[in-house]
């Protein structure tokens, strides 16, 4: 049989991505750090580390701690700040060879508006991702856990973002992620990243202290994947599908099989984060695996997977079988 090329491209709102694999903010620096290890042009898109109005040195070490099937981090949004980002990092972004998304963080609505207003007109930025869910700074979770505040924040930013795709990254540390998704979309989000890290803690039993200097940190890695898949599915079905807002699904993705799960759950693109620390060539391997999977299934495009999860109305499996009883 003749092997036909499958189409891996996806449409993330107004952005066309060559494939659905996106690097996750905070796990891939500002761009060129991974250039020695793999061809960044093979990515669907790249997401920078968070940019705040002023430079931040971040939290005291220890900043990370490995846990079973995952890791905790409390970096504290260490970054060079808006001015140095524009001067030193932005000129590097075109070298990536793929669309660049810039993650934006702040303490107040004014902070986000200031950074987004400055970055939006600059060339080389395809999208702005609002980090409203960093669990490692004093008030980082406030915007990410209060729907009213989130709507207000996104509305304010929407007013100054004209060119770049506006993405909001949701926190899983809420009782109903769909309510947050709705608030972000009402504010004007064009895409959603689901999910950020889960708040966690690990304890040194010799010292009776937290393993992280910050006390708590964000849990990432394969440990959180089932939670992330569930939240993508929930956001997709409850909110995003009906209004046509695409989701970047992320949380513990390590293999192409993981990516397929996220796509079926309703993600249009899939973020790879913690896995990059272990193997920076993971995105290429996922693309290869996805292409082979589509071919085996006789599918022409990766888009045919998005949201195809078979799920009954009550959330039960719609798998046919003998009736219970």
């Amino acid at each position: 049989m003749q092997a036909t090329a499958v189409d891996l491209s996806v449409q993330l709102g107004r952005l066309r991505l060559a494939n659905p694999v996106v690097t996750v903010s905070g796990t891939c620096g500002y761009g060129m750090e991974y250039a020695p290890y793999f061809d960044l042009a093979r990515l669907g898109a790249f997401t920078t580390k968070a940019v705040t109005p002023e430079p931040r040195i971040g939290n005291e070490p220890d900043r990370i701690c490995e846990v079973r099937a995952g890791m905790l981090n409390a970096i504290g949004l260490a970054n060079v700040g808006l001015e140095a980002f524009v001067r030193d990092k932005l000129p590097e972004l075109p070298k990536l060879g793929c669309p660049a998304l810039v993650n934006v963080a702040g303490h107040s609505i004014d902070d986000y508006v200031k950074v987004c207003r400055a970055l939006d007109p600059l060339p080389g930025i395809a999208g702005l991702e609002l980090n409203v869910s960093c669990p490692n700074v004093a008030d980082g979770l406030v915007f990410g856990t209060d729907p009213g505040l989130l709507r207000e924040l996104v509305t304010a930013v929407r007013g100054v973002v004209r060119r770049a795709l506006l993405i909001v990254k949701l926190s899983p540390n809420v009782s109903d992620v769909a309510a947050m998704a709705r608030a972000a979309i009402e504010g004007g989000a064009e895409a959603l990243s689901v999910i950020n890290t889960l708040l966690g803690m690990a304890i040194d039993i010799d010292e009776w202290r937290p393993m992280l200097a910050n006390g708590t940190g964000g849990l990432s890695g394969p440990a959180i994947k089932p939670i992330a898949v569930q939240m993508v599915s929930r956001v997709y079905r409850a909110v995003a599908r009906d209004v046509g807002v695409p989701i970047i699904g992320m949380g513990g993705v390590q293999t192409w099989e993981d990516a397929v799960e996220f796509l079926l759950a309703g993600a249009t693109a899939v973020g790879v984060g913690t896995a990059l620390f272990i193997d920076p060539t993971t995105p290429g391997k996922i693309c290869d695996g996805l292409a082979a999977y589509l071919q085996r299934r006789g599918l022409a495009s990766v888009r045919e997977l998005v949201g195809q999860l078979k799920l009954g109305e009550g959330g039960s499996s719609a798998r046919p079988g003998p009736a219970a009883g």
Binding site: G26, T27, C28, G29, E33, Y34, Y37, K49, G58, P61, D62, R63, I64, C65, M71, N73, I75, A78, L276, F277, P280
Partner: peptide, 15 residues
């Protein structure tokens, strides 16, 4: 020696 996540300068943990 510091607790390292990636070794490539991206995770910002080994300050």
């Amino acid at each position: 020696e510091r607790v390292m996540g990636c070794g490539m300068g991206t995770c910002q943990s080994c300050v």
